[in-house]
Design a protein around this nucleic acid. Structure first.
Lengths: 341, 341
DNA sequence: CGGTTCGCAGAAAGCCTTTTCGGCACTTTC
DNA sequence: GAAAGTGCCGAAAAGGCTTTCTGCGAACCG
């Protein structure tokens, strides 16, 4: 039913064909093409030429079967549409270098059953390792210690400290945000953030409060939790301005919230940044660049997170496993919403 | 260097192990597990039990080697960070159903060399087919007719009409946008869109103009091309309001542009939608829902596009190839920016 | 010049699974 | 009771590649 249409071209040229054309055995052909040492230069040249002529490309399946290494890894995500998976995935793809490693992508959509299923499927395809990307920073259940391949958790750490997890340092992010605001002369800082059930909002707030304390300052009002939306930003900012008209900076839990906050400020006749400085988290370019003025934000370095995860996975595959949680630092990207000009 | 650390568990249990435990030959074990007909029920049960006990999972590599079908496809994208690839990818993942098919993801980043490279790598891993996702709607070079597996182009069509391409009907999208505006009573409609070098902006404008003509209307002013940014939307809208204060609707080339337009309208004291209706294209939720009021937009149905591409690829793999360009229709998602309430 | 080493090529085994085919022990049929 | 048919199981080949091991001629040594 399948071979009805032989697609088009040269269906499968094998090492056998190459060997025959070069007038050697498959063993010799294999050695020649793989740079093994026991082949005369002249013979090797003949084989290489034959291979090129037939545009031979070795069957990785057969090779993997033998080598017990497939050069594939599984990338298991839970939020394909999200802000996090994609840059992480790019970083990972980048680090793997495409030459040697191919990436299986699976989206479990937050469903544990589906996740198990995918893991099974990946294992039966004999991936060399797994990267698991969560959709929230909160710890997630481990895939277990009994897996036959190494696993690295990215963004969302595993609950099992024996696993290796690479995460963003959200506390540090909160600190550095406040440090930046203080360094630009702000002293009456408020904090409007998102969904309180997210670890990210709690940790960022925690870091912000700690940094304020270090500077001998206090937060203006309480931390305002809500949702990760512009409309929450607008609403919260309006309330805040009513209660604390003297504030000179609003730190926002995300760029979206910050956009809403800036809208509200404008409507209240406050100017940014002269009157009130605003900054966000995530450095999501489509939000930061569209803002007026452009929005200062803390970049979470997701691509680097992906790259590091990939590197750690490589290391583990090569027999250098680690465990524990590795937190990557963030960086403040300064734009017009906190410094004039 | 590798087996230094045997990771953790039961490295590789093969069919042989199962057969031995069940006291049968591998041939029988295979038949038993695959539901082949020539096995006594009692024997089959014994094998199944043995397999479970060892938590055996067949080596897909070996299986593929034999079957000449791997159950894998390559997804070659050129804009991983973008708005298009991800939903398409989700749709494809969805259609493939995860049970039977695994997806190799590659990002060529717009580089033809890298793309060739990835194709080679995928072919050597013996994928059953390829989906190529472009980053713009403009036609792109074909991968060629000589590939040993079927290829489906998604979003960006192939230049070769013999290839099969699945694209969005941007002309139709433009038409249906105008139809919607007219149906809500608008007659003085302007159009602010993005980068003129994009096929998408040209086609949407073309469709909009055609629909206006059908309704016996004319565009207010010229089509305003610019960039796909909020700031362009703001700037263009300000100019437009100065020149044509009587307009009652602005069709925007993207949701981002629409956001800028709405900002400008507010600053000019115009209300949306009572005074001026605004709508965008793409239905990018983070923009449409944050707008005040929520933004009416034309949804490009990217997920469906991905699903259809996957289905067509399946069909082609099963020997039912098609060719030509298949344009999928779009749908208007109505929100507060065009209808009050 | 006999014996040892060395360089290079090929035969064959192995990786894991599926499938074809032969064979064995029965049961059925006249 | 012999011939034909049935039901189940296993041996073996196949799929494409790598690797080990054997073998053979040439070069080297004394």
């Amino acid at each position: 039913m399948n071979n009805a249409v032989p697609s088009s071209a040269s269906r499968k040229v094998t090492l056998n064909d190459v060997a025959r054309l070069a007038g050697v055995s498959v063993a010799t052909a294999s050695k020649a093409l793989n740079g093994r040492k026991q082949v005369r230069a002249e013979t090797r040249a003949r084989v290489v030429e034959a291979a090129e002529q037939l545009s031979f490309s070795p069957n990785e399946l057969a090779r993997s079967l033998l080598a017990d290494r497939t050069g594939t890894v599984g990338l298991l995500t839970n939020d394909l549409e999200g802000r996090f998976s994609i840059p992480i995935l790019m970083g990972a793809e980048d680090a793997f270098g495409a030459d040697s490693v191919a990436v299986f992508l699976c989206d479990a959509r937050g469903d544990a059953i589906r996740e198990k299923h995918h893991v099974q499927a990946l294992l039966s395809r004999r991936v060399d390792g797994l990267i698991v990307v969560g959709s929230r920073t909160d710890p997630r259940p481990s895939l277990g210690r009994e897996l036959p391949v190494p696993v690295v958790y990215a963004y969302a750490p595993s609950e099992d400290p024996e696993d290796l997890s690479i995460v963003v340092d959200n506390v540090g992010a909160g600190r550095s945000a406040v440090d930046h605001l203080v360094s630009t002369g702000r002293t009456r800082i408020a904090h409007i953030t998102g969904d309180p059930t997210y670890g990210a909002s709690q940790e960022r707030a925690e870091g912000a409060l700690a940094a304020l304390a270090d500077h001998g300052l206090e937060l203006v009002g309480e931390v305002r939790f809500g949702s990760w939306t512009e409309s929450w930003g607008r609403a919260a900012a309006s309330m805040l301005l009513g209660q604390h008209p003297g504030l000179d900076a609003i730190l926002c839990g995300s760029d979206q919230v910050a956009r809403g906050v800036m809208d509200a400020l404008r409507e209240h006749g406050r100017t940014v940044p002269d009157d009130v400085a605003v900054m966000g988290f995530d450095n999501w370019e489509i939000f930061t660049s569209g803002a007026r003025p452009a929005l200062t934000s803390v970049d979470m370095n997701f691509e680097r997170l992906g790259r590091v995860a990939a590197q750690r996975l490589f290391a583990a595959i090569d027999g250098e496993p680690r465990s524990g949680v590795e937190a990557l630092d963030t960086r403040v990207v300064i734009r017009g919403s906190t410094v004039p000009g």
